[in-house]
Amino acid sequence: MSTPLKASISVPRSKDLEVNGVKYNRSSSRRNNFEMYAWLFMRLSGVVLLVLVFVHLWVNLVSPEGGVEAVDFAFVAGKWASPFWQVFDMLLLWLAMLHGTNGLRVIIDDYAERDRTRFWLKVFLFTTSAFVILLGTLVIFTFEPCPAGADPALLASFCAAG
C-alpha cells in the first residue's frame, strides 16, 4: 500500500474567508511563472543597467570637451547619427523603464492594502510607463538631426556638408 503520488494530492484551499477585514485565506491561486520572471528580470536588468547608466553618464557628462556644458542639440544629433548610440539609448530606456515600473508595481503590492487601490494605482503606473517608453522609442528612431530652416549655428557640423 504505497502513498498516493502527486496527481491525487489536492492542495487544501478552502473558500475565501474574511473576518473584520482580515482575509484568512489566499484570495487567488494564480499559478504561472510571471512573478518568477519578474524577479529574475529585476536582477539581470539591474546588473546591465549598472553598466549602461555609468557609460551614459560618462559619455554625456564627463568625456565631452567642456563637460556638461557641451551637451546641446548638436551633441545629441551627433550621437544619434550612429546606430550604436541609437541601440544603446533604446536599451537604456527600455531596461530603466521596465525595471522602474516593476519596482513600483512591487511597492504598490506591498503598501496598498485594498485590491481596488492597487488596481487603479497600477493602471496609472502602466499607462504612464507605456507612454514614456513608446514616446522615447519613437524619438530615437524618427529623430531629424538637421531640421530644415533651423539656425545652422545650433546644428551638428555634418548638416552643413549635406
Binding site: I9, S29, R31, N33, M36
Partner: peptide, 21 residues
C-alpha cells in the same frame, strides 16, 4: 520526500517566495 516539485509549484504563487524582499 517525493513531493518537492509540488511544493515548489505551490510556492511559485503570486503570494509565494517571490514576495520576499
Amino acid at each position: 520526500d517525493d513531493a518537492g516539485d509540488l511544493r515548489l509549484e505551490i510556492l511559485n504563487d503570486k503570494e509565494g517566495v517571490w514576495r520576499c524582499r
